[in-house]
Amino acid sequence: MVYRNLKADKIRKRISHYFVLQPIVLESWITSLTLLRNACCHHSRVWDKVSSIMPVSSRRIAHSTNRPTSYTLG
Rank of each mutant, 00 (worst) to 15 (best):
G74N: 08
S70H: 12
W29E: 05
R14E: 14
Y71M: 10
A39S: 12
R4T: 08
A8I: 06
W47K: 08
L73N: 07
R45H: 06
S64F: 14
S16Q: 05
S28Q: 02
D9T: 08
K49S: 04
W29A: 01
S16L: 02
S57I: 15
C41G: 14
I24V: 13
S51P: 07
G74T: 08
C40P: 00
V56W: 00
I30D: 01
L6T: 04
T34H: 13
K7M: 08
R60T: 10
I53N: 09
K13E: 00
V25N: 00
R4M: 08
H63C: 08
G74A: 05
N66T: 14
K7P: 09
C41V: 09
C41F: 10
H17W: 01
Y18E: 00
L73V: 11
V25C: 05
R37W: 11
L33V: 08
R37N: 12
A62M: 01
V46Y: 05
L35N: 10
C41H: 12
R45N: 10
Y18T: 04
H63V: 08
V25L: 01
R67L: 13
R60E: 09
K49V: 11
T69H: 07
Q22P: 06
V2G: 11
S28T: 04
R12T: 01
S70G: 09
M1T: 13
I15K: 00
L26N: 02
F19P: 03
H43R: 13
V46Q: 03
R4C: 05
S58V: 03
I15C: 02
W29D: 00
V50M: 13
L21S: 04
I53R: 08
V20I: 11
T69P: 07
T31P: 02
I30Q: 01
S28C: 01
I53Y: 12
T69W: 00
T65S: 14
